[in-house]
Nucleic acid binder design. Structure first.
Lengths: 255, 255
DNA sequence: TGCGTCCTAATTGTAATACATTTATACGAA
DNA sequence: TTCGTATAAATGTATTACAATTAGGACGCA
């Protein structure tokens, strides 16, 4: 998206003097670079369209164009009304999850690629969870597994089978959160958005029991702070899911 | 980004009649929905700003706003000149990488989180490379390692030390590409955008030799199709880098 | 006929102005 | 004090105009 970056060592001085290329792309580039140089942090005000236009000696149009682009990239929020204008946005995982969804739709990445990527993320998450999970994290995980165990103790009705899948997904989320790594969590959520429609909605009784057993083992290993075992268990679990999904097994279990 | 989606079962009929909210956001929503309903595929022409404006009974401005947003999202390409206008774009993994990088930057993720995430991605990439690397992939990797070996055979000058770091980064890129997984590749590039400014620019002689040895081992394991060993080697390598960087060792080696 | 050049029309990029709409803040009235 | 209202700042949209870019056809030349 943005390529050449000249030094311009000054902090806020490099903002006027927009030269070649298109004006709007220059503005975008400058904001982008300033963000990654750490000169801009969430909440900072860039100014209004008119302010920036005057400062750069251009009309509202290219500034507006740049604002729309930066807004779409999730870099700025735009507020209407008095004391409005462009502000550096706070991070929002959903934004790049959307971006991922778009690209996957356009490129047509294979399911297999997605699964392998998911395995990479979640096995590391399991390992880190074993190292860093707090008592609260563990309690939350146990709670979810108990709920799954209760559900699987009797034959699953149609609605219960759907609910089981959802709770199981919540378990995976909780586990990733227990790893206390927001980069992993962000990537996990992005992958999930794309993979979710692929996973089957309902879980069969037999698989449900396997899932519960597997999750219980996982919690045990985390509780024992056995990172290697946690990673291995998660890996095996996901390989099974992967195999099921890739042969289009309709009764596939837990995402 | 886009929320409510009403049915409007017709294919191209729902395009006029833009009502409440902001006009531009309605346009964005319609294109977004059409894309995910499969009514738009890469290469399709949306029309020019004027065409759409007339069709929707609005001015060029909101249509232009929508185009900028859709362009930033990677959904459309805009061509200038005769027979130009907006076209549904082909996918581009770099866009997702940019989006992820932005969010990681905005959320303010710690270096440690980034490293662990990188380890997750690259260890899986090494493993997959051992399974799926082609002869071309291996040749490319060998080429890069040979270059590194040549450079490290004599003491590194200041500029050579910088160059060594760059070539080493190219090696990591080549390895991820050899895994033939675009989802992993996109995530790798995203992390790299954020991590690159952190890594030291120059590599010391002692470390350079260690890096070359490590990379050679890695290639050997890939050539032997030993996925476990490839993963383990990559893991150890990155753990070393991680430790170096976290104690702010200025002579840190290869990203 | 074949090929290269120029021209033309379509289209985005930018400018300038105007007005409607939204919103934070200050001021004023009860 | 509290509530409402006026005001000003800012985006959203409309209109018109022109510069810059570009694809494709027309034209001319061999």
């Amino acid at each position: 998206m943005i390529s050449e970056r000249k030094l311009q060592s000054s902090k806020w001085a490099g903002w006027q003097a927009v030269r070649a290329q298109s004006v709007s792309s220059r503005i975008i580039e400058q904001v982008w670079d300033a963000l990654f140089r750490g000169e801009l942090t969430p909440g900072d005000r860039l100014g209004s369209e008119v302010e920036l236009a005057q400062k750069l000696g251009v009309s509202r149009v290219p500034v507006r164009d740049a604002f729309r682009t930066l807004q779409a990239l999730g870099i700025i929020d735009i507020k209407v009304g008095a004391h409005g204008g462009a502000f550096i946005a706070a991070g929002d995982a959903k934004r790049f999850a959307d971006a991922l969804a778009v690209q996957l739709k356009l490129v047509g990445i294979s399911i297999e690629e997605m699964f392998d990527s998911q395995i990479a993320i979640e096995t590391m998450a399991a390992e880190l969870a074993a190292k860093r999970a707090t008592e609260d994290d563990l309690a939350h995980l146990r709670e979810l597994v108990d709920e799954l165990a209760r559900m699987s103790s009797k034959p699953l009705s149609k609605t219960a089978a759907v609910q089981f899948t959802q709770v199981s997904m919540r378990f995976h989320e909780a586990l990733v959160d227990a790893a206390h790594n927001r980069a992993l969590a962000a990537q996990f959520r992005a992958l999930r958005i794309v993979l979710e429609p692929i996973y089957s909605r309902r879980t069969s009784d037999a698989i449900a029991r396997r899932v519960v057993a597997s999750h219980k083992d996982l919690i045990d290993s985390i509780e024992a702070r056995d990172a290697d075992r946690a990673r291995t268990l998660m890996r095996h679990r996901l390989e099974v899911v992967r195999a099921h999904q890739l042969m289009k097994a309709v009764d596939s279990p837990d995402p």
